[in-house]
Amino acid sequence: MATGPTGNDGMLRIPCPHCGERDYTEFRYGGDASKIRPPHGTADARAWQEYVFLFDNPKGAHLEYWQHVLGCRQWLVLERDTATNAVGKAHLARSQGSP
């Protein structure tokens, strides 16, 4: 399907660390990347409850997961400002450390 260029849904350009800057239509959104998943096997239900259901809704700087599904299939951590939609840097999720 063609990208609706006059749709009101924004038009992010995402800098994939592998492929370069691409249209957001090549990506899949994956949620808040500032949350840390409890290590596998963590038996604490409260930790999981927190991770799965409780989210901040910040105005401003945000870290989020995006997967370049139509490109290199890598999951990225992208900086995006939720107030201005300005896109910052991105790094591969598997390369640890902050962007």
């Binding site: 998943r37 997967q67 999720a93």
Partner: peptide, 17 residues
């Protein structure tokens, strides 16, 4: 199919590196 593939990649690339 697509959902599971992305989910497995998510786990391997973000949580279980």
């Amino acid at each position: 199919a697509a959902e599971v593939m992305s989910w497995l990649e998510f786990l391997l690339q973000t949580a279980w590196i």
